[in-house]
Amino acid sequence: PTPPYLRWAESLHSLLDDQDGINLFRTFLKQEDCSDLLDFWFACSGFRKLEPNDSNEEKRLKLAKAIFKKYILDSNGIVSRQIKPATKTFIRDSVMRQQIDPAMFDQAQMEIQSMMEENTYPVFLKSDIYLEYT
C-alpha cells in the first residue's frame, strides 16, 4: 500500500484527509506564520456541517460571528488578506442581518483553498519539514 506521506503529495485534499498530514502541514504553516489559513478552512467545513434547526440557531449565529471576528474582520490577518473584498462584504452583511446560511463561508473557503493549492501546499511539499518526514 502507498505510504500516507506519498498520498499527501497527490493533492491538498488527500493531505487534509489525514490527521498526521494535517499535523505536519500545521507545523509547517506555523513556522510560516500562517496556520490561520488551515484553521479557517476547517472552521468553514465544520460550520457547514451544522444543520440548521431550532435548537442550534443561537449556536450557529454565535459561531458565524466568531469566525467572522477572528479571521475576516481584521483586514491585516492572513486569511482576511487572501479573501476578495466582495466575499468579505457578503459575509459581513450576512452576520449583521443574522442571515446565517450553512454555505455562507463557502466562497471564502474556496478562495483560501485556491491560495493554499497554488502557494503554501506546493511549498510545503518542498519544505525540510516534509522531506525530513519522508
Binding site: D17, I22, D39, A43, C44, S45, G46, K49, L63
Partner: peptide, 20 residues
C-alpha cells in the same frame, strides 16, 4: 455557555478526519 474560542475550536475539530 461556551466562549467564542471554545466554540471555534469545537467547530474546527468537528471537521477534522478521525484517526484511522
Amino acid at each position: 455557555i461556551d466562549s467564542e474560542d471554545d466554540l471555534l475550536q469545537e467547530c474546527i475539530s468537528s471537521a477534522m478526519p478521525k484517526k484511522k
